[in-house]
Amino acid sequence: MKVKTLCLLVLLLLPLTAYAQGLPTITLGVGEATEPGEVSTALQILMVLTILSVAPAILLMTTGFTRIVIVLSFVRQALGTQQAPSNQIVVGLSLFLTFFIMAPVFNQINEQALQPYLNQQITQDQALTEALKPMRQFMFSQVGEKDLQLLVDISKAPQPENQDDISLLTLIPAFVLSELKRAFQMGFLLFVPFLMIDMIVASILMAMGMMMLPPIIISLPFKILLFVLVDGWSLVIGSLVKSFG
């Protein structure tokens, strides 16, 4: 009873102690701007916060992350191991492989845009322009001509004469579409050997009259064994990295 009373007194005295010490408070409000520069600064802050909220999606959609995570997900589905490896492992491995593949591009952005901007050698607009050049070059090296032409036709824009005439609003969706197409092509090739094992096991079980036994229970150890014997993870990761070359 004494302990409960002591705790209650502490909780009651905390606000009084904080008031006596003069702790700072935070207030939010909307005031009237006296100069146009204040409005411009507020709009810039709002734009930066908006960009930061969608920055992860922009970063993932303009790199090789899409292809990598889809192919690794296909590997798990083809093996039939349900949640092994888990989603966290698949996404984490995809992120680190993305950083590994995009390292030359990121280094080029750092040397040509970020460092000169931090050293006040170029302006903010020039830094943004220089940073986009390596990213555009990477996406152009991976995008398919048919996908790019499809987006140009949909946008009803004039036929571009060179790469500089293609805007990011057209390039990024075409790049993502190409990544999805390549990922599903690689996923199909991954499914073929495991599908053959499932068919062989299902045929043997039917021939033995064991139709009530699910074939996936029998084929799963054989698929894992095959994947381990051929060093499957090294083959998949090596093929993924080389596909960006």
Rank of each mutant, 00 (worst) to 15 (best):
A183M: 13
F184Q: 07
Q185M: 14
Q185D: 15
Q185A: 11
Q185L: 15
Q185T: 12
Q185Y: 12
M186L: 15
M186H: 14
M186P: 09
M186V: 14
G187F: 08
G187Q: 07
G187N: 07
G187T: 15
F188T: 11
F188S: 07
F188A: 08
F188R: 06
L189T: 11
L189I: 14
L190F: 06
L190V: 03
F191N: 10
F191D: 02
F191W: 10
V192K: 12
V192D: 05
V192L: 11
V192M: 06
V192G: 05
P193C: 06
P193L: 08
P193R: 03
P193Y: 04
F194K: 04
F194L: 02
F194C: 10
F194Y: 04
L195N: 04
L195G: 09
M196G: 07
M196K: 13
I197M: 15
I197T: 10
I197A: 09
I197C: 04
D198N: 13
D198R: 10
M199T: 07
M199L: 06
I200T: 04
I200Q: 00
I200H: 00
V201I: 04
V201W: 00
V201D: 01
A202H: 00
A202G: 03
A202Q: 00
S203F: 00
S203V: 02
I204K: 03
I204A: 01
I204C: 03
I204G: 01
L205S: 05
L205Q: 03
L205P: 02
M206S: 10
M206I: 02
A207G: 11
A207I: 00
A207S: 10
M208V: 11
M208G: 08
G209P: 05
G209Q: 01
M210Y: 12
M210I: 08
M210K: 12
M211T: 09
M211F: 09
M211N: 10
M211E: 12
M212I: 15
M212T: 13
L213K: 09
L213V: 07
L213W: 08
P214L: 02
P214I: 05
P215C: 11
P215T: 14
P215A: 14
P215F: 14
I216K: 07
I216G: 11
I216P: 13
I217V: 13
I217F: 15
I217C: 14
I218R: 08
I218S: 10
I218Y: 08
I218L: 15
I218N: 09
I218W: 10
